[in-house]
Amino acid sequence: MNSFTLADCSTVEAALSQLKDGAIVKAGGVDLLDRMKNGTDTPTRLVNIRNISTLRGIHSTPQGLTIGALTTLAEVADDPTIRTQYTLLADACGHAATPHIRNMATLGGNLLQQLQCWYYRSAEFQCLRKGKELCFAFSGLNQYHAIMDYGGCPSVAPSSGAVALLALDASVELTSAAKGKRIVTIRDFYLQPDANPHRFHVMAADELLTAIHIPKPAPGTRSAYQKYGEKESHDWAIADAGILLEMDSNLCRRAVVAMGAASPVVRRSHEAEAALTGKPITHETARAAGQASMTGAMPLSMNAYKVQLFPVAIYRTILLAAGQMDRDPSAAG
C-alpha cells in the first residue's frame, strides 16, 4: 500500500470540498482498503466520510424509505420496517459477506464496491476496465464470471444490495458542491461495460452518494433475496436472486426477478417475470420462471454450472417470497 493523507470529515460540505485532485472517498473501507493493499488503487488522498452522522440512518417517508448512504449493512438488515416491508433488502444486506464486515460496510459503499474479477483485483493484470484493451477472463480462469450481457467484460456485479434495490425500483441521491443534489434510479446508475469500459456508474468524481430512496411497495408485495456461494459466508455470490411479487390473492399481478452474479450490471429477467405475471405462484410456475431466466445465457469456458444454478436460485427464492418454502439451507447463512 502506498502512503496517503487522510482527511477526516464530519459534514457533507467538508467532504465535498475535499473531493479534488484524485481524492477517494472512504466509507467503511472494506472494499477500498483491499484495493489499496492489492495495489489496484494507489490514491494519495483519502476522504473519510464514515463519521458524517447525517448520512447514517433509516427514515420512513410518505413515499417510502430513505436510507443514509453510511447506514451499515447490519443496520439495514436488522431494521424492523425493512425486514417486513422491504424484505429482500434486509435479506441481501443480512447475507452479504460476514457479520464483521456487515458491521463495517455501508450501504453506499456496498453499491459502489468495485468488480471482484481476480484479474481486475491484481496489480499484475492491466485489463479493459483499467484502461487497457485486453480482457484476461475469456481465455483464462472464469468460473465465477458472467454468463449473460457481458459484452467485453464478463466480471459480475458484486453488490447484493444493488440486486435488492433494483428490484425495489430504488434511486440514489448524488450530491456535489457544484451542482447540488440529483436523483438517479439504480437501473440507470450502473453503466454497461461496453458503454464505457472505464466507468462503472454515472457518479462523477466530485459527487458523494448521500442517500438511497425506495418507493413504498404496492399492497400485497412479498419479496425475498437469496445468495448462493461456494461457501456459506465470507464469499461472494455465484448465483443470487432478488424476487419481488405483487400478489392479488393468489395471482401474481407483477413480478420482479433480479440477479447480480449473472452479468456485469445487476439485471432483471423480463422472461422470468413474464413467466409469473398473471399466474399463481406454484412450484411449476416458479421453476418455469427459473428456466426462463436463462434465456440468452452464453456461459464461458468454466461457468456452465451457473446456467444450472441460477434457475434453482430463482425458483427457490420465488417460493420463499411467496411463503411456500423455507429459507434454503443451501443459500448463504
Binding site: Y119, E124, F136, S139, L141
Partner: peptide, 10 residues
C-alpha cells in the same frame, strides 16, 4: 488457481 496464460496465481 494459476492463470494458464500468464502463470500467475489469481
Amino acid at each position: 488457481l494459476l492463470d494458464p496464460n500468464y502463470g500467475i496465481m489469481v
